[in-house]
Simulated scan of single mutants.
Amino acid sequence: MLEFSQHQERVFFGMSAYFCFEGIPFHAIVHKREIIEESRDKFVIRDEDTVILSYPKSGTNWLIETVCLIQTKGNPKWIQSVPVWQRSPWIETKKGFPILINKEGPRLMSSHLPFHLFPKSFFRSKAKVIYIIRNPRDVLVSAYFFRHKINLIDNPESLGTYFELFLKGNVTYGSWFEHTRNWLSMRENDNFLLLSYEDMKKNTRGTIEKICDFLGKKLEADELDLVLKYSSFQAMKENKMSNFSLVPEHMVTNGLVLLRKGTTGDWKNHFTVAQAEAFDKVFQEKMAGFPPGLFPWKYP
């Protein structure tokens, strides 16, 4: 269970912007306590479903775009006509949950839920999960800048403030370290595919082929080329169904930029030497026991 200081409670719970469910903070704007509880205890994930799972700001929407294009063999009509949050609804959100419970046939869905809050039915199913991880230093920086584009939540006044909250797990969806540790316990399961943002950047085509194999999808070379083309950073940035430009203006500041840079290692431009050292120390403590080769970024 997370413990919050009075200052952190103001950051989280000021103006009822957040609520805490079993130790995990959630946005009251997009989440509801009853939905999270119902999705965990009663929502049925079917054998034919596919779930895209991640900690926030790990490349989730890029992965969704890629999987959607794999399903259409590179045809961009679907991704250019239906918003990303409708193509792969979020299990735990007010808008996503009703769509999923009423949808028939194989479903594509997304989630940031930690292991202990994920639908229990998944663990008795053959449904496939694709879990994407990203260097948590880049996750932290990306999340900080993203938050400052949203008007409906309390934003930390500095990167330094957010840095401390992140290391303690006092951020939306809780600790990156706990989220990742727990989900990585599934990595040897046949219905669990582990990907990394860094590998997707380094070898995008190879990653797409790996996803195709996992999902049992056979794409020809020209179809793979189309998936690459329409899931590129520039293509997604220009696609209003994928770049979140459809979000109402009153909710954002100077336009919501979902795709800010699309790079790796940006944390080096923002961390101080002391912050980098502090982060490495926490990483070593929290992620002890995992082989260094499991993470595609530099291991402390």
Rank of each mutant, 00 (worst) to 15 (best):
E3D: 12
E3Q: 14
Q6V: 15
Q6C: 12
V11A: 11
F19V: 08
E22Q: 14
P25H: 06
V30Y: 15
K32P: 15
I36H: 04
I45F: 07
R46I: 03
E48V: 12
E48P: 08
V51R: 02
S54R: 01
P56A: 06
K57Y: 13
S58W: 11
W62T: 09
W62D: 10
I64M: 07
N75W: 10
N75T: 03
N75F: 09
K77Y: 15
I79S: 07
S81H: 05
S81D: 13
P83R: 04
W85M: 10
S88N: 01
I91S: 07
E92S: 11
T93Y: 02
G96T: 05
P98A: 04
I101S: 09
N102G: 14
E104A: 15
R107M: 06
L113N: 04
L113M: 12
L113S: 05
F115A: 02
P119W: 08
S121F: 01
F122C: 00
R124L: 06
A127R: 04
K128N: 00
V129K: 11
R134Q: 04
V141S: 09
R147I: 02
I153V: 14
D154F: 10
T161K: 06
F163V: 07
F163H: 00
L165F: 09
L165G: 05
G174C: 05
T180N: 01
L184W: 10
E188W: 14
E188A: 02
D190P: 01
L194H: 08
S196W: 05
S196P: 05
E198R: 09
M200S: 09
K201D: 03
K202M: 03
I208E: 03
K210D: 07
K210T: 12
D213W: 00
F214C: 05
F214T: 06
G216V: 01
E223S: 13
D225Y: 03
S232M: 06
M236F: 07
N239T: 05
M241P: 12
M241V: 03
N243A: 11
L246I: 02
V247N: 01
V247F: 00
N254V: 03
G255M: 06
V257K: 15
L259P: 15
D266G: 15
W267Y: 09
W267S: 14
H270A: 07
F271Y: 14
T272E: 08
V273D: 14
A274N: 13
D280W: 12
G289T: 05
G289D: 01
F290C: 05
P292M: 07
F295E: 08
F295C: 00
